[in-house]
C-alpha cells in the first residue's frame, strides 16, 4: 500500500508539472521560481485547511464546518485586534488556535458522545458558526484601517526568501507528516479509517480518536481564520463562504479516500497545490473563471476514478497460483 500511495502521489506531482508546463507555453513567466513561490504562498491557507480536513476524512468522517470556523475565529481575532491593538500578533494566533479548538471540540463531542453522523453535526455547526459570526460582529465588517499594521504584516515578513505565511504552511506540513507517520494517534487514525471494528478489538478508542481529529481540524480552522483575515484584510460574515467545498476538493484530488483510511499528507498538499495553480494560472492566460470551475470539477472526478481503479486492483485472490505469483 505504501509504495502504491507513493506511486499515486508521483502521478499527481507529474500532473502538476505537466500543468505548469502547459501554462508556461501560454504564459512563459509562470514556471519562474519567483512565481512558483508566489503560487505556493497563495495556496498556503488551502494546504493547511486540506491537512486539517484530511485527518477527519481518514476516520470516515467529514468536517463541513471548517470554513465557518475560519470565518468566526477570523472575526474574533480581527475584533480583538481592532479593540486592543496592543495584543501581540503571536498571542492572537494562539487565541485563534484556541477558539478554533473549542469549535472543533464541539463538533467532536457531538460526534463522539451523541453518536451523530459527522456530516449532520458539521452541517449544523456550519450554519451555527457563521450565524455566531453575525452575532459577535453585529453584521459589521472589520476593515483594513481598523487592523494594526503588525496584524496585517506578520505573515508577509520575508524570512530566508519566503514569507512567514509559506513558513507556517511548511511547518504545518512537517508537523502533520510527523503526527501521521510517527505517533500513536496518527496510526490510530489510519486504523480506524480502514477497519473500525478491528480497531475496537485492538484497544483503540474510536470515539475518542474521532474527537481528537475534530479538535485538530478545529485548530486548523482557527489558525486559517487568522491567516485568511490578515491576508485579505477584511473580516465579515461572508468570509470563505462555501470554501469548505474547496477544502474537500483538495483532499479528494489529493487521493484521500472519502471512504476513510487511505490518504497521505503529501497527497493533501499536492491536491491543494493543483487547485491553487489552476486558480492562479487560468485568469492570467485569459481563461474564464467558468472554465476554471469546470477544470477543478473534472480533476475531482478524474481523481476519484483513478483512485477507485487503484483500489479495485487489490481484489480477492482466489487461485493459489495467482497468490504465489
Amino acid at each position: 500500500m505504501k509504495s502504491f500511495l507513493k506511486y499515486r502521489e508521483i502521478w499527481l506531482l507529474a500532473g502538476i508539472v505537466v500543468l505548469i508546463g502547459l501554462i508556461s507555453t501560454r504564459f512563459p513567466g509562470f514556471a519562474d521560481p519567483a512565481n512558483l513561490r508566489q503560487v505556493f504562498n497563495d495556496t498556503s491557507i488551502l494546504m493547511i485547511l486540506a491537512l486539517g480536513q484530511m485527518v477527519v476524512i481518514l476516520t470516515r468522517s467529514i468536517d463541513l464546518s471548517m470554513a465557518s470556523n475560519l470565518c468566526f475565529t477570523g472575526m474574533v481575532v480581527a475584533m480583538l485586534n481592532a479593540a486592543h491593538p496592543a495584543i501581540p500578533t503571536p498571542a492572537l494566533i494562539v487565541i485563534a488556535l484556541l477558539v478554533g479548538l473549542v469549535l472543533g471540540a464541539i463538533n467532536g463531542f457531538l460526534v463522539w458522545r451523541l453518536n451523530i453522523p459527522s456530516i449532520v453535526v458539521t452541517l449544523g455547526t456550519l450554519t451555527i458558526y457563521r450565524g455566531a459570526t453575525f452575532v459577535v460582529s453585529g453584521g459589521a465588517w472589520v476593515n483594513a484601517d481598523q487592523m494594526s499594521p503588525d496584524f496585517i504584516n506578520f505573515q508577509r515578513v520575508v524570512l530566508l526568501g519566503l514569507p512567514v505565511l509559506s513558513w507556517i504552511a511548511l511547518l504545518v506540513i512537517a508537523l502533520f507528516f510527523l503526527v501521521m507517520t510517527r505517533t500513536a494517534i496518527g496510526r490510530s487514525i489510519y486504523a480506524i479509517g480502514v477497519n473500525p471494528t478491528a480497531s475496537v478489538y485492538a484497544g483503540i478508542d474510536v470515539g475518542r480518536t474521532k474527537f481528537i481529529v475534530f479538535c485538530i481540524s478545529g485548530m486548523i480552522g482557527g489558525l486559517a481564520g487568522y491567516l485568511w483575515i490578515s491576508r485579505y484584510v477584511i473580516a465579515s460574515v461572508e468570509v470563505a463562504n462555501g470554501y469548505e467545498l474547496n477544502i474537500i476538493a483538495a483532499c479528494v484530488i489529493g487521493g484521500i479516500s472519502i471512504a476513510g483510511g487511505i490518504g497521505s499528507v503529501g497527497g493533501a498538499v499536492l491536491g491543494a497545490l493543483f487547485l491553487g495553480i489552476i486558480s492562479n494560472a487560468l485568469p492570467v492566460i485569459n481563461i474564464s473563471p467558468f472554465w476554471q470551475m469546470a477544470i477543478s470539477g473534472s480533476a475531482i472526478i478524474l481523481a476519484v476514478v483513478l483512485n477507485a481503479r487503484g483500489e479495485r486492483r487489490q481484489g480477492r485472490i482466489i487461485l493459489r497460483k495467482a497468490e504465489a505469483a
Binding site: 500500500m1 510517527r182 505517533t183 500513536a184 496510526r187 489510519y190 486504523a191 477497519n195 478489538y201 483503540i204
Partner: peptide, 27 residues
C-alpha cells in the same frame, strides 16, 4: 474484525501494542 487491510504487516502486528511501542504518543 481481525486484520486491517491497507496497513502494512508490522503496523497490523503492533496495533494492540501501540501503548508499549510508543513513548508519550511518539512511536
Amino acid at each position: 474484525q481481525g486484520v486491517v487491510i491497507g496497513l502494512p504487516i508490522f503496523q497490523n502486528v503492533s496495533l494492540p501494542s501501540l501503548a508499549r511501542t510508543s513513548k508519550s504518543g511518539v512511536l
